[in-house]
Design a protein around this nucleic acid. Structure first.
Lengths: 226, 226
DNA sequence: CGCCGACTTGAAGAATTTCAAGGTGTGTGG
DNA sequence: CCACACACCTTGAAATTCTTCAAGTCGGCG
């Protein structure tokens, strides 16, 4: 009996490339770990000692300057892969935003296993290529969009990832604090707050609680997203 | 006699994963193409019909908004790989900045070939992972650095990529116009110009001609890079 | 009830953009 | 060979956006 047998992301994660026997071999070198919000799994600049699959929860990838400015460079969800295989150092911090469960492997074990399983590497390549595309599209937001466009784009992305629809509106709970939204968008917390408040005042969104968002007028958000 | 036999990037590009026979098979599905500055090889949103290796020259990857704002999301040099294998659409424009030579493959041919050559996919995976790391680090610059830090970081990167050292100074020719530097850094052309002029006035760099840069005080640039 | 952290709001300040000229260098045609 | 046009770059001044600094407010929890 292996963890993988009951794994909910078994068919979405890169593991889906493997046969039952191969999976059981992979299971042998992996182990589960739970993370609490704020807990980190890797640190920027550290040796790349492990890689992992996200089973449940949301985590952020971030980098920072010496003087404490931070930029969130990626957000990962269940079935996403984290860590840097085939490389000596981690180039980002990986930190849980919510309670999270991950399936971790020592990097050397994973590298060896992957090198012998081309189908797994193929899945990982596809994932990495998509992630690179998504990351590059985000650069347009960071470099060229203003605060309103940034917030609108961000809320639409969150809605697509996390939203549930009910009678024409889309609702979700943000896995981010206001400061973290700022760290994703390259804005200060105050600018984020003002833009969100403004969207609410103008009837585009509703804010049932601090972390909850309801999109009332998706079209308007799209118009504002640039 | 194949193109590959005399190819100068033969041992740096992903082709280095292949044996002589495999290389000759790859050679059979590829062809050379020359590009002039400003000429594009792919367009954002178009079907992904080809992929390529850069043999010579410098090319930019860019995305834009509908209203004409542009963001350069990557710069590629000899031996780099371009295009989107295993995906339906290109998510960036690819445009030559200098005269360039590339070795192009139809995407479907390349996908089929790669799927049968795990060592090639492995190289491509490593390259893509490094590129993703580099791209994410650049996001810190776009989201959190000010104009001076952006220019200093940019000039240091150019120096590392293109610079030649001579009695304590590093010189190179920028493959970018001022506008394009702005498109890389998320700044206007005027801000770029002012920052560059300021670095010159303060004796950190010299500008022998419009495109030429000499770094006189690397340490000062590093201090300003944040 | 009151404290604390997270968030909001306001006012002032700074950085960057925008708008508008003014240079500079290169190539072309007279 | 000079003059001119054109593209690219620089510079200045005003406008705008975003940040910074400084109070408030809100909601949960001891």
């Amino acid at each position: 009996m292996s963890y993988c047998d009951t794994c909910v992301i078994r068919n979405q994660a890169i593991c889906s490339a493997l046969s039952t026997e191969e999976l059981s071999a992979l299971n042998g070198i992996g182990r589960r770990r739970e993370l609490e919000p704020g807990e980190s799994l890797m640190w920027e600049g550290d040796d790349s000692l492990l890689v992992a699959n996200v089973i449940d929860g949301v985590l952020k990838l971030s980098t920072g300057t010496e003087d404490g400015r931070e930029q969130i460079v990626g957000v990962v969800y269940p079935s996403d892969f984290i860590g840097r295989p085939f490389g000596a150092t981690s180039s980002q911090n990986v930190t849980a935003l919510t309670n999270a469960r991950v399936c971790i492997f020592s990097r050397s074990d994973f590298d060896a296993f992957a090198s012998q399983h081309p189908a797994l590497e193929h899945k990982l390549l596809q994932r990495t290529l998509s992630e690179l595309d998504r990351t590059r599209r985000w650069m347009l937001l960071l470099g060229r969009k203003n605060a309103e466009e940034k917030l609108a784009t961000f809320l639409l992305e969150m809605a697509d990832r996390l939203g549930t629809e009910a009678n024409g509106t889309i609702s979700f709970d943000l896995p981010f604090s206001r400061q973290q939204v700022g760290d994703v968008l390259g804005l200060t917390i105050e600018t984020v707050s003002r833009q969100i408040t403004r969207l609410k005042k103008e009837g585009v969104i509703d804010l049932p609680s601090r972390r909850a968002v309801t999109i009332l007028d998706r079209q308007s958000l799209e118009d504002r997203a640039g």
